[in-house]
Amino acid sequence: MILVCGILGDEMIELMCARLDDMSYDYLLFDERHFPGRYGLCWEASPTGVSGHVSAPGRTVGLEEVTGVYARYVEYRDETKRSALSPGEQRIAEAEYQLSVMELLDLLPCVVVNRPKASTSNDSKVYQGFLANEVGLLTPKTLVTTCPEEARAFYEECRGRVIYKSLSGIRSIVQRLDEASLSRLGLLKNCPTQFQEYVEGVDIRVHTVGDEAFATEIESEASDYRYARRQGASLSARAADLPPEVGNSCAGLAAALGLELAGVDLRRTPDGRYYCFEVNPSPGFLFYERATAQPISEAVARRLRGD
């Protein structure tokens, strides 16, 4: 039995349910939009393990039956659910319910894609960068600073080929540091920022599922291809082959982070070196699977069933 946790409005939850249907794997969707209410859970934890059940309309599943969990932690608002509460109380109630599921997922002995505790490193890209180094992947020369003069010195040292972006997991559009942005360096005093030497090359997204790696090559003129369409830039994707050692490094990085599924962002330079930029612990791979027909969701499904 596979447990799928999330909300149906999330396209990744839809994709995984469709894939599990397609492969005739038995699963239960735990729709958090209706938890509490139509869905419920009860679990007990002790040094000998965790026991209990999850319940859905017309069905109750014992936790001992669960071979794998696919979970997405998506923020959503349902004002109708607890309308008697103030906004502050609603936030606490939502956090309590979310934690009642997340703590269970951190404890379950089966495969969990992905455990909340394994996803935290996403909140520090520099931290992830050091781990990437440890498994043999290159990372760009980086400056983390609150000092305008340091940023300018780094810019000059890198001959003007510098990008800046957030340090944390909060999404930011990767931008080239240019004359216009140099004039705003004074703002650094209010918030640390990450600068990196620009690495020229082709973007490659690698999805690892256990020790399998699926690489997709991206072609775009945008400095951050995730926002290519918004910037009016072209975007195309195709399946790519990775040198085995790079694929192994990506899988090793995911394993070091405790991630069953990961999206590793690489760039291949013209001379064939691979730089790692970050690891996404909850990758939305729908775009890549559609564009390349790589069987990523099948690999996830097999892993969830313990095949």
């Binding site: 909140d123 520090s124 890209k125 520099v126 050091f130 957030s166 640390p192």
Partner: peptide
């Protein structure tokens, strides 16, 4: 945003220092 960036900085920086750090935190 500032809080997230500060957290990301300090959580990456402290583990890299070779002097005693109380506490180095795993993620």
């Amino acid at each position: 945003y500032i809080s997230a960036e500060w957290n990301a900085l300090v959580m990456a920086w402290l583990p890299r220092l070779r002097c005693p750090v109380v506490n180095r935190l795993r993620p």
